[in-house]
Amino acid sequence: MRFLQGGDRAAFGELYQRYAQRMQGYFYRMLGQDAELASDHTQDLFLHILERPHLFDTQRKFSTWLYSIASNRCKNVYRSWSRQKKVLPLPEKEQQPETTDADPVDHLDRRLFETALTVALRDLPDAQRECFVLRYQEELGIREISEIVDCPEGTVKSRLHYALRQLSRHLRPFNPKKIES
């Protein structure tokens, strides 16, 4: 990032190779698994970095800064959708080719579970969804998440706890052990 701040364009290419896929995944999950929307926001995010590299504080971790910008962009999108009375859309999954050796019932169960998880994630409050995705998809630490979402670590843990509890209630029908609480 220091090289980029010094005007080295090749450094930007290196950063893009390292982080573009992760940012794409984050936007993809946070914005209703809309690939096109995720691509647009990934582009805008890196364009922002290219245009304003001086905004980065070299004392901070680059990935934290990157996720902070991405998180703020998602919040802006949610606000925009809220004004338009729009809800987080459900993904339109492409039909994947059926494998001959896979059990059709298992495959169907898996597809149903994926849809249910997507719906359950969509129904989470924005702050809880953000923490859950950062923790279990991006596999970030609690401290880093607290810096990204700009709140105390305790709040992050609390949000994760509530998110997991709500998801487990939503997904209970898919649990093979069929535990009744």
Binding site: Q21, Q24, S39, Q43, F113, E114, L167
Partner: peptide, 30 residues
């Protein structure tokens, strides 16, 4: 509840690992 949350956590992690995220736009476009 512990068992249910554990199953949800592991299943979600598996899903996140297995679910393919579409590739980002090429660097040239940016």
């Amino acid at each position: 509840e512990y068992e249910s949350q554990r199953w949800t956590l592991l299943a979600s992690a598996d899903y996140f690992r297995a679910d393919s995220v579409p590739p980002p736009p090429p660097l040239e476009r940016v």
